[in-house]
Design a protein around this nucleic acid. Structure first.
Lengths: 120, 120
DNA sequence: CGTAATCGTTGACAGATGTCATCGATGTGG
DNA sequence: CCACATCGATGACATCTGTCAACGATTACG
């Protein structure tokens, strides 16, 4: 199943630190997103149903932890974007950002170093 | 308004060539996507309502053409992904693909040339 | 024990999305 | 002029999403 945008916010919290109780998750993402307790609980439930998050009983509550690795998610999302918009290639994406003037000098230096390292 | 995934397929056809009649669009995207005539027409209607596509009367039918540039769409989508998954920076994305072994030697060479050109 | 707090489960509901079919207007060929 | 073909508009409907609130079970505390 697909992880939706709102759900991914919960996932990010869990990828940052886990396991977490629902209380901790609510504290972590509720306020910043303007979500009530009910909203976060619903998102959590859906993630558990989707098997993207695991819930381990701990006393009367659950400890929640991600079942899918962030890397897998990020990779699928990235590849999806590349495939949809850039014929699956990375260079056109970089060109796009460059043309749009979205790259700072620092970004460029970073990219340069990175590419040179990869090329070795 | 947001352009959905299915709708973006129609947009891609129009970005490739325009204006087009609904007939031509159906011929272009129907078959490959397993969509009936009704489906394509509905998507087109929604795009017109969203003002992502313009419809110019031409006899008894319309000539459809994009009202939003592909560049703007691509840029928004790309930036969105970067923001959501890579703190808005490009380098981590490149690292991601590299680490995942998704880069061919050709990709790397291409990137290298590209970055050097940009860095000038 | 009884009562208040807390959890997770569910129900709700509006809006977006993916998919199709039907309908009314209009034009075309004979 | 009439029957037929087309076109766009619209209605339908299931599913997904974003948001919340209410409920039932369970636990903790006085």
């Amino acid at each position: 199943m697909k992880i939706s945008t709102a759900e991914s916010v919960i996932m990010e919290a869990l990828w940052r630190k886990n396991p977490l109780t629902s209380e901790a998750i609510i504290a972590e993402v509720g306020e910043p997103n303007g979500w009530t307790e009910g909203t976060v609980k619903q998102l959590l439930s859906r993630l558990v149903k989707k098997k993207a998050v695991g819930a381990t009983p701990e006393g009367r509550r659950y400890q929640y932890a991600p079942l899918v690795a962030r890397g897998a998610y990020v990779e699928a999302e990235s590849q999806g974007l590349l495939d949809r918009l850039f014929e699956g290639r990375l260079a056109p994406l970089v060109t796009q950002f460059s043309d749009a003037g979205k790259l700072t000098d620092e970004d460029i230096a970073e990219l340069k170093a990175l590419v040179e390292r990869i090329a070795k």
